[in-house]
Design a protein around this nucleic acid. Structure first.
Lengths: 208, 208
DNA sequence: GACCCCACATAACTTTCGTTCTATTGTGGC
DNA sequence: GCCACAATAGAACGAAAGTTATGTGGGGTC
């Protein structure tokens, strides 16, 4: 069984070039290709390709939104972004939308073939520079603000309940202290974190 | 200037094999190598290698803990995990600890060379299977509550500003509407999300 | 057209939050 | 014993948040 593929790409040369090259290999079967996200959304659920190669910059709806719309209608399909965008925002947005692979348009055709195989085998092909963006997210999580350490254990306890959205009254009951004391603790927390309200405190204390 | 490298690996064959192969290339300069994490922690801050190839399974302290201890003492050093472990837990733990690259021990020597270059150039070399584990984290995050879809575009806009910690007055100014209207939008948001205040809404809308 | 639903808008009103000031108690360090 | 500090609490007040009622205009439906 060969791997079925569709392409969503508005540039004729790119789309046709990829189609021709991929079709040289009996391992792959190229299904229909599309110029726009709108066409793709209509047709892909019927085609159920195993792989969709998706451009981001399309006329009308972009490729990321296209994935969002189509992924639930075509379970089993894996999406490979194929784009010139290398900035964090587009990368994260695309992956969150449901893409599993992310290749830049300067990728060679042979590497594209290999990437399709990897994607089909459950991998997430991407350049090491793109991978670094993902890794950075994990690195960032590790940095603890010095301010947080300045909080006393009681203040931390209050902060935990505060983060759940409890009222002062409810926190007071939880800790069996008066509302006035809760107020006081929270005031000190805001002071130490240099913020003026609950939302800012939570954004500061627990990323976002 | 050649790229300076250290290795932390208890198996003599692996350590010496890597050392010899890497040393064939004038592009790299192999500094000291270590059998244990404890030795590495003592010596690496003085060496300041640009790259450290780190095994996980070491006698005594493991390679992940070793990175945690050493990374602040040797800024500028990039860590490449080199291990047989392919399970999620080890991968995430290693990256969180500060590793930037993650290679499995079945990786070829030539690929290792290429990976060192990529790591040195700011990339995060890893197999597409490892990359998929990272991507999965983003996919998981994308489970959007049905309630969120019920929000109108205006309500979503308000929610975005709300999450930044802006006051009603500030949101009103941003959107050029009255405070009363902001209030009403927010009330409807709470209604749709089945919550009663800002904090609960944000916890519900954006993970936590 | 009459009807309904809904996004958007506003005002009036109640509740909660956040600030400020003051004060008591307990604990650990010098 | 004295000092510093965390935890507790009361009171009083303005600011912000949240609730309720009401109205308007744009789409659909029958």
């Amino acid at each position: 069984m060969s791997i079925t593929i569709s392409i969503v790409e508005d540039l004729d040369e790119v789309r046709d070039g990829l189609t021709q090259f991929i079709s040289l290999n009996a391992e792959f079967k190229m299904l229909r290709t599309f110029r726009t996200a709108e066409e793709a959304i209509k047709e892909i659920p019927g085609l159920r390709p195993e792989i969709v190669i998706m451009d981001i910059n399309l006329p009308g709806m972009n490729g990321i939104e296209c994935i969002r719309q189509v992924k639930d209608q075509s379970p089993g399909t894996q999406f490979m972004m194929f784009t010139v965008y290398e900035n964090d925002e587009k990368v994260f947005e695309a992956l969150k939308a449901g893409a599993s692979g992310y290749l830049l348009k300067n990728t060679g055709l042979l590497q594209m073939i290999e990437a399709i195989r990897e994607l089909h085998d459950g991998g997430s092909p991407m350049s090491s520079n793109i991978a670094r963006k993902l890794v950075s997210v994990f690195h960032a999580k590790e940095k603890v603000l010095p301010e947080i350490n300045a909080l006393s254990s009681r203040e931390n306890e209050v902060l935990q309940w505060l983060s759940k959205g409890l009222l002062y009254k409810e926190i007071a009951d939880k800790l069996s202290i008066s509302i006035a004391t809760v107020r006081q603790h929270i005031h000190r927390i805001y002071e130490k974190l240099h913020v003026q309200n609950r939302t800012e405190a939570l954004n500061k204390a627990f990323g976002k």
